[in-house]
């Protein structure tokens, strides 16, 4: 084929049963012009080396499984064109996570941070379903919609300089998610979440490096969300201060 060319894919390999530390392995493979990085990994898995371990599923940039560092930058590999790179492409597991094996990182810590921000509607009172739906204006929807678009691919944790220094930092995706519920007119739980946000590892740990927003494959702006959450917390705290003094 006229378009046929080859590339060398340099993949991080690590099997905790055998390896003390990660190593790299090079695969020279034929590639096609329209391939994503994931297509190259799947080619290796199917035709060259079935022992390679990586996660993937939807291959349409919505399930969030296939995040990896490509030439050092966090990418969703099913969305990232292989043709954007030269003859050698390095694929590594996401940074700032323990590696389970090869390109597979451990997700449980992320899930715990996620749960910490109470990512569910906290109602003022339980309403029966027979009461039907809430009303919400388009403008109210837009106040939180973009923060509901996170696919949990964890690229922002791989990019975040704070996560790398402060492993307990809630991190961009979790804070943006908590903020998403705080901004939702149907929710009444912001006081609870803001306590968590103000705690150690909360919003004030963010140094506004903005790396999270830059690597997000879904154009969510976690950094913007965190800054909004900081502001809300300062206001919330100040207000609480005034009320408490008023009570005395």
């Amino acid at each position: 084929m006229a378009n046929q060319q080859t590339k060398t894919i340099v993949v991080t390999r690590f099997d905790p049963d055998v390896d003390e530390v990660p190593k790299t392995q090079e695969y020279e493979i034929p590639v096609e012009a329209d391939w994503k990085v994931l297509d190259a990994l799947n080619y290796i898995k199917d035709h060259v080396d079935p022992t390679l371990s990586h996660r993937w599923s939807c291959r349409m940039a919505v399930c969030g499984s296939c995040g990896m560092n490509v030439n050092g930058v966090p990418k969703l590999t099913c969305k990232q064109a292989l043709s954007d790179y030269g003859d050698r492409v390095e694929v590594q597991p996401l940074a700032n996570f323990p590696v389970v094996r090869d390109l597979v990182v451990e997700v449980d810590g992320f899930m715990e941070k996620f749960k910490k921000v109470k990512p569910w509607i906290i109602e003022a009172k339980e309403a029966a379903v027979t009461e039907g739906t809430n009303r919400q204006s388009h403008a109210e929807l837009m106040d939180f919609k973009q923060f509901s678009m996170c696919i949990n691919c964890m690229l922002c944790y791989s990019a975040c300089p704070v996560v790398s220094n402060e492993p307990d930092f809630l991190g961009p995706a979790a804070i943006a998610l908590g903020h998403r519920y705080n901004q939702d007119t149907r929710d009444h739980g912001s006081a609870e979440r803001n306590e968590i946000f103000r705690d150690d590892g909360g919003v004030f740990s963010c140094s506004y490096a903005n790396e999270c927003a830059e690597v997000c494959p879904k154009s969510v702006d976690p950094s913007g969300g965190i800054q909004q959450a900081k502001l809300n917390n300062v206001l919330d705290w100040a207000q609480g201060f005034v009320v408490r003094r008023g009570e005395n």
Binding site: V129, R135, Q136, L141
Partner: peptide
């Protein structure tokens, strides 16, 4: 309708009409 109303109450960001209904 009950199940989708429930999903709305659980926070699903449904697109809205001018009057705020789903």
């Amino acid at each position: 309708p009950k199940e989708l109303s429930q999903l709305e109450r659980w926070g699903c960001p449904f697109s809205r009409n001018e009057d705020g209904t789903v």
